[in-house]
Amino acid sequence: MQLFYHEKSLDSTFELDQEESRHLIKVLRKTKGDQVQFTDGKGCLVHGAILDADPKRAKIIVEQRLYQPQDDFYIHLAICPTKNLDRMEWMLEKITEIGVHEISFIESKHSERVFLKMDRLEKKMIAACKQSLKFHFPILNGLRPLEEILKESRLDSYQRFIAYLDEDNTRHLYEKAEPNQSYIVLIGPEGDFSKEEVAMAFDYHFLPCSLGRSRLRTETAGVAAVHSLQLKNTLIIP
């Protein structure tokens, strides 16, 4: 199955933008009558056929519409972006494929990057969703100060974790997390969170957690956190 994306309403017939039309008709060489699958990124999966194979404005007719329910759990990764943007794009791609529901970027005391090209990151995320057949696309939030994220009232019902370097912090995220919950995990920059930031997170009832014995790069820690929570909720032990 090859999945395409159409951000507008998937009505009985709809037209694709120029980029998706060109990819469908010119690159993949699809023609009139060929079967295609689309999602709106909000859980809707459409089975349809090409009605007009115009490489600039291809038209699709809907034959079947399905809806995939949301997961019973919710993973929110809040992470400081790396100085090297390629590493952050790599992480975003991988956690999207594994299954993350929301991503926020943190401004912290030791942050190495204070600007992000959100349009570029969104394109990377959408491409990863199509590759991994995701019908619910993650929420992607821009850079915000750490304290602003900590103060969000909606987090009161979440399991809240902060991963940072501490030899006494040995209990793994997988061990601490309970299944079928909403989670937020904070990941600091290469220089880690400051002591003051860690203390502030504790004030907002965030719990310390480990991501393993190795010292991880920021982007690797992000992948490890999302993967651990996915395993907690999807691993079936006989």
Rank of each mutant, 00 (worst) to 15 (best):
I184P: 02
E190Y: 03
Y204C: 13
Y164C: 03
S194C: 00
I139V: 15
E175G: 00
P208T: 07
G191P: 10
Q181P: 03
L165R: 14
G142L: 01
R171E: 09
E219Y: 01
C209M: 09
E197G: 01
A177L: 05
Q230H: 14
E197D: 02
E147C: 09
E152S: 15
F137D: 00
G188R: 02
D168T: 13
H172K: 10
I139E: 07
S228K: 13
F137A: 02
H227T: 13
I187R: 01
L146A: 07
L155T: 14
V226L: 14
P179A: 09
F161Q: 05
S182Q: 13
G191V: 03
K151S: 15
I187P: 00
E175M: 01
T220Y: 06
F135T: 14
S157E: 14
H172C: 03
R217N: 11
L211C: 07
F206P: 01
H205D: 15
F135Y: 15
T170M: 11
L173A: 06
I162C: 08
H172N: 09
P179W: 09
L207M: 09
T218K: 04
Q230F: 14
I139D: 06
V185R: 06
K151N: 14
L146C: 10
Q159V: 02
K176L: 15
S157C: 12
I184Q: 01
L231F: 14
L231H: 11
R144I: 12
G191A: 15
L231R: 14
P179E: 09
L140N: 00
R217G: 06
P179F: 09
D192R: 07
S182H: 07
N141R: 15
L216F: 09
Q159D: 02
S210G: 06
R213V: 05
K195S: 12
D203Q: 10
S214R: 12
S228F: 14
G222Q: 00
D166V: 02
I187G: 00
T220R: 05
R213L: 13
Q181S: 06
N180P: 07
V185F: 09
I149N: 06
H172I: 06
E197I: 05
D166Q: 04
A201K: 02
F135P: 00
T220V: 11
D168Y: 08
E178I: 05
V185W: 02
A199P: 04
I184C: 02
L150V: 14
F193T: 02
G142A: 06
F193I: 05
V198Q: 00
E178S: 10
L207G: 04
D203H: 03
I184K: 01
L231G: 06
E196Y: 04
Y183E: 00
L150K: 10
A224K: 12
E197P: 03
L207Y: 12
G188S: 05
E148I: 11
L150T: 15
M200S: 08
Y158D: 04
G142S: 11
A163V: 10
E167Y: 04
S182F: 04
F135H: 08
I149K: 09
E152F: 13
S228I: 12
